[in-house]
Nucleic acid binder design. Structure first.
Lengths: 209, 209
DNA sequence: CCTGTGGCTTACCATTTGGTTAGCTTGCTG
DNA sequence: CAGCAAGCTAACCAAATGGTAAGCCACAGG
């Protein structure tokens, strides 16, 4: 197993270093000098290759998004909404994606929209085929569903701490909490309609005000 | 309605300004000078009152957490896991809390743990009383449930954009997506066990490797 | 009237940040 | 070999940031 420092081009090394650091810390908490140091180059080289820090971020965005889109099969965005490909990607990429969605970069916003749209189509199909529950508000449901699948990426630290796991991005950790999620998606969480009724009561109350 | 700039003490004005800005942008993207400007004071006064930026953040943490804990009834953390109080708080407070969880401050971590623990007890009670589904892994389920309730706070921008709403923190917006969430919690998302079966298949496959 | 004391500001400082410039090295090509 | 382009660096810069020092100002109490 060769060291990453040896073989890759400096440009790729910088991109990878940025990917890891941006994903772990957030873009604005990471300085170009930190990226350069991790890549083993001078900080001026980062600018030489990417122009600005924003340029570097865009390169990371494009790279990661290309991984997700061109993942295991072009139909990735057609089944579980591209999220399968995302979850199969390496931990650094996953972390970076989570950060990107949180930071709200334009590229991430576009990707998010795509995923939600694909998910809505997918669920619509599921309803037609009978394996998904119908919904009063399919658009909102698709959006919420996507945010829920992304939630573990956003709250990784808390999840791992609470579950006593070393790192949520470990496959073991992913397995455990995804099981809990699928359980809810399959059986629901509530055994009766009281929450739904309560919500409707609130809606009515507000509507009559 | 008086302007906030008039009556409050400068200290409180600074705290409120910090709360808003930190919540909207994230702590490290906001400078002390920006906070000071919004509060209408010099940036040195911020330091005079709170010592350091970290001190200011801790004050915000403590203030917001006290709002959540001492919200509508001390039993807040006993029913829907303190999240009800959180959602009833004003938009700035909600935004700040979301950021705090994402930034992973120690105080936020403690609060998160409390909420998860309270939620687990609450669900346990629900199972005993028959209004909640049983779970194979109650701890993981409680943790996932909490992250799911927090997800809209984390992905507010994306949610509002996708749903065509001006601001997720508007009550109208909250109503809409929470309805979709409760729907899933009540009816589930999948109408059969195929996702659960697929997960178990993966587990078996991994276990035998 | 003096004398604090607390709220508050101006002026300053060291550090870090993203970004620029000039120049060095290496290797390819005419 | 000349020269030229690409990869790369050291040195530098202006701006912004968190933080400090000194002092102003109002007002309470002796």
């Amino acid at each position: 197993m060769r060291s990453e420092t040896d073989d890759l081009t400096a440009r790729a090394r910088i991109r990878n270093a940025a990917l890891e650091l941006f994903g772990a810390e957030g873009v604005n908490r990471v300085s170009l000098r930190a990226v350069a140091a991790r890549a083993g180059v001078s900080h001026a080289l980062v600018l030489h290759h990417f122009g600005t820090k924003e340029g570097l971020r865009q390169e990371c965005d494009a790279y990661v998004i290309s991984l997700v889109r061109g993942g295991p099969g072009v139909e990735a965005l057609e089944d579980t909404g591209g999220l399968a490909a995302m979850l199969e990607a390496g931990a650094p990429v996953r972390r970076y994606l989570g950060r990107a969605f949180l930071d709200g970069t334009p590229a991430a916003a576009t990707l998010f929209d795509e995923i939600v749209e694909a998910t809505e189509r997918w669920l619509e199909q599921g309803v037609a085929e009978g394996w998904a529950q119908p919904s009063e508000d399919p658009a909102a449901r698709a959006a919420i569903y996507v945010t829920w699948l992304l939630a573990p990426l956003a709250f990784d630290g808390h999840l791992s701490r609470v579950l006593g796991l070393p790192d949520v991005h470990d496959l073991d950790a992913t397995m455990r909490y995804s099981r809990a999620g699928i359980e809810i998606f399959t059986k629901g969480l509530f055994a009766d309609d009281r929450a739904l009724s309560a919500w409707d009561a609130v809606r009515e109350q507000r509507g009559s005000r």
